[in-house]
Design a protein around this nucleic acid. Sequence first.
RNA 1: GCUGCCGUAGCUCAGGGGUAGAGCACUCCCUUGGUAAGGGAGAGGCCGGGAGUUCAAAUCUCCCCGGCAGCACCA
Length: 649
Amino acid sequence: MANITLTLPDGAKREYPAGITGAEVAADISKSLGKAALACEINGKFSDLSIPIEQDSDFRLFTIKDEEQALELIRHDAAHIMARAVQEIWPDVKVTIGPVIKNGWYYDFDRAEPFTPEDLTLIEKKMREIINKREPVRTEVWDRNRAIQFYKDNNEPYKVELIEAIPGDEDLRMYWHGNWQDLCRGPHLAHTGQVPADAFKLMSVAGAYWRGDSNNAMLQRIYGVAFRNKQDLKAHLHMLEEAEKRDHRKLGKTMDLFHIQEEAPGMVFWHPNGWTVYRVLQDYMRRRQIADGYLEINTPEVVDRKLWEASGHWDKYRENMFITEIDEEHANEKRVNALKPMNCPCHVQVYNQGLKSYRDLPLRLAEFGSCHRYESSGSMHGLMRVRGFTQDDAHIFCTEDQIAGETKKFIELLSSVYKDLGFEDFEIKFSTRPEVRAGSDEVWDQAEAALENAIKALDLPYEIDPGEGAFYGPKLDFKLTDAIGREWQLGTLQADFVLPGRLEAEYIGEDGQKHTPVMLHRATLGSFERFLGVLIENYAGKFPLWLAPRQVVVASIVSDADGWVAEVVERLRAKGIRAEADTRNEKINYKVREHSMAKVPVILAIGMKEVEDKTVSMRRLGDKGSKVLGIDEVVAELVAEATPPDLRD
RNA sequence: GCUGCCGUAGCUCAGGGGUAGAGCACUCCCUUGGUAAGGGAGAGGCCGGGAGUUCAAAUCUCCCCGGCAGCACCA
């Protein structure tokens, strides 16, 4: 038999007979490595240790220390082991697929009865048994027909469907975890015992459509998380607890920001505190937009269906619109109106008043536009997905040549705004032409190039989402990652070559002829509701002073200090600080605790000492101690800090 | 919309076929106390809505509404 040469990552070369497996190589290098090896890489291909190596190759082994590969393997094998456990407990359950996802995996099952939380415990126990058996994982390549027949014989219709959907007649790889078999691309660990028995946990069960299609049967999906060791699992579970604490719905209650109630699902009742943050944010955005050449307008919320028919929304979007009914007795004519689901058609109406010249372009019309969309019941989520919301919307009417410049200008505005609001990094997704679309390929070429060049010119990283653009044009979506790693789509910029023509927007060009402008739909925050949700979670409710709904509480320590308390509050309020007095008959400990839990950033405590010296004892949220300062000093410091970032010197 | 779970006082939750409980919050009283809960008393609920089963329903069943997790959706 011929020999082959394996080149290790450090450059060392080793010679072995062809057909040797990764496992054998590992054992040959050292006994301990033979045990520790989880999988390998052969010429850059992630592979099982059991695969024979036939040619000279670059070769690398992975152990538990290689985090990325180890986690991938552990989670993937955990998915198989879970499926095996489920079928060992309930042999009639049909298996489908079970991929690795962030932090863990899921596996979809078809079973008539729902899995209960007790079932999850049962499955976990069975999984540990399987892990402790340390049974080998082996693999074989089967031809397609054999695999199909096998699954037919075993009454696994989903697997049959999966194989039939795989194009061509490529061979299929089968894996066995002990005696339990699954179709899988691999790679896998060498034996079940390599999954750490104390570092995984089954988290939840939920419905999921077979192949992600709502026309298909609903399966039961079990989610699990897995890590390399117990500590990492613990850390992850702890992180989830922390995330729960900063849930904006929870903080919305404890900080008395807003509520939502049955009579208006998906619509927000803003309380004084929440509305203060909302207003501060809106005022800030207004200043930023005016500074950037936007003209603010305001348009109707209830508009005749005729306009929606013209814009195309009536046709394509009607079931998501709130349609208004008018009491016929009092209406002089029967009209059907709809609450606007978006502002664009209204903005075109404003544009269409008066003849426009190319000299008017780009025309940037902005509106804090209140929109309503009848979102499906299951999709609503606190402030993040609502039925009534206000966009920081604007439409830029421009020529095709101006798209690139306007895009660049917008991204600069957006970056600066996000930074002011505490987000240093954001992701850009560039969505290109979908299959079904309006407009010629030339126009799409130009529009895509314009958007892409603008991002490139700013030297920002971005990802391409092919085919995910709107039917009327390509778009850029801006996503923020909050403090706990969740992604939210907020800002957007969409080029539109369709609506202006449909609603007969035009301008007179240099050539004296009528032209149709391009329309850029853009929003920086997206909607105030969602952005505030993200903002609350990102700051965990501890807003910087300028955004905090309640900025300063001046608390008396003894009643004899009440006079000075009132005076200090007045001094701060005179400078525009949101200050309030707390002269209740309570101990200072009690007051500090209460206002700290309400996330008031600054507490000024006042006892007789402060009264005599005309000072205050300032305590910052989160700090242990306090410091005594002169009143002028404190006012100056707080005023500077409470100034919105765009107004600072 | 779909699957599963949930809905009890303002909030967080316990209870569970015989007509309701705790802590915090609230009101009043005592206490004036130096930086994350001083003490006492009181008030507060058709147990999400409707129907059914039952001598009896907050509790069991069904329907509806709303919420949560996930899926689907997000022009």
